[in-house]
Design a protein around this nucleic acid. Sequence first.
DNA 1: TAAGGGCATTAGATATTTCTAAAATTCAAC
DNA 2: GTTGAATTTTAGAAATATCTAATGCCCTTA
Lengths: 245, 245
Amino acid sequence: MAKNIAKNDSKLNDSKLNGSEQNANTQISNSVEDYLKAIWLTAQDGAASTNALAEQLNIAAPSVSAMLSKLQALEFVVYERYKGVSLTAIGKARALELLRRHRLIETFLFEHFEYSWDEVHEDAERLEHAVSPRFIERLAVFLDHPSHDPHGDPIPCPDGTLPDTPNMALAELKAGEHFVVARLLSQASDVLAYLEKLKIQPGTQLKVIDIEPLGGLVHVLIDELPQALSKELAMIVRGSIVLSA
Amino acid sequence: MAKNIAKNDSKLNDSKLNGSEQNANTQISNSVEDYLKAIWLTAQDGAASTNALAEQLNIAAPSVSAMLSKLQALEFVVYERYKGVSLTAIGKARALELLRRHRLIETFLFEHFEYSWDEVHEDAERLEHAVSPRFIERLAVFLDHPSHDPHGDPIPCPDGTLPDTPNMALAELKAGEHFVVARLLSQASDVLAYLEKLKIQPGTQLKVIDIEPLGGLVHVLIDELPQALSKELAMIVRGSIVLSA
DNA sequence: TAAGGGCATTAGATATTTCTAAAATTCAAC
DNA sequence: GTTGAATTTTAGAAATATCTAATGCCCTTA
């Protein structure tokens, strides 16, 4: 079926797409959902490359190619061979809806089922495809409509907007500044576990003692204790400057 | 692949099954899980017919035939062409594990997410395939290890045993006897809604006023109010006799 | 501007689960 | 026992999503 689509594709092809109108509310497969989410996570509002998606999804690049043609036919993406792919309004809405499910589920597992920070992701990854709109609505009420998940990532609202999220990197601060951590830009469990050991989590307050000039090593004070973070690690710690100590 | 299996099958075929030992803990598909559960629900410890399974699963009979051959090869069932199918010990364990997931999830949705009695089933049907062992373990703790779900159905224990469940049919009582409802043997939402309207639910106490001799109509007293149930309906209301009023 | 490397796509195949239509089997009734 | 209806299975096909191997495209570098 990917072949047929690809053949129609060969010259110019915005004409006569088959599944035209009904895709705003159509039931879509887990795979399609995953691709849409991956495109959003990879490119936000820009264009994602096939290889980047293949890596994000852990799927071989040719499989991604075939699926992109299918998503194009479904009008979830705009895709030009060899040029990358980006989400249409409908595709983006679907991606954000899935992201909302994912992050609400993570929040629930973390707050009520005593999951550790790095355990939530893989379970949420499967549950997000299985929950109904009713479940998500009730879950949001149960959690009292949180705006951010345990990693500090914003939870998309039902209307498709994203809550504001402090996004300054710890690595960009200057000596003497005070900082409150809002978000950790990583899903890697070893990274999260390391940061947890340093007591760096959403809500943590810290002070920058000094920044090493060459490698960008960041010296901070957390709970009166001095700690050091590499520039790379300090780049994924996001938050905002605070004025008073 | 079903064809290959079927061909090997033709004469006698308990020899050289391929996936022999590892199926006790192997990851199995949603479909396979559903079939195992359906076999258990249809036949408990006996043998289920192809058509009965097809109806239970809402799948065409030939599809069921093919799948049964596959389940046989996986050693989850004992299956003889034209003779019906029954679960092996491994298959039964898998079925009960899924049933445990299903009923714990139903209990959760009912007790904490304000699902109505008849809403829980369809959501549980999808979630049961998506939850991890960790999730179920935490859920059981969260719910304080319930023995029965909102319908009064027993929740299998992790070791594969089933809690005792009062199982006398309301239709089998005699005039003057007192009864406490434990279980409603139906998943049909119209049936459940009707019984809810009559205030007949697990825990309800009632008294039998009279039983109509020909059609078996049952007259009962619930909360001082007289009600009448058909024999058919009174057959799915299960529970136990109580001595004191 | 020609070559080469890297990225992306086509080609061809496999696994899984399902369907409808047609053939086979079973079993009960005559 | 034979027949006929009901049940069950085989045959053949389709949809979905994935893979590896081979080819095609693009763009930088010389």
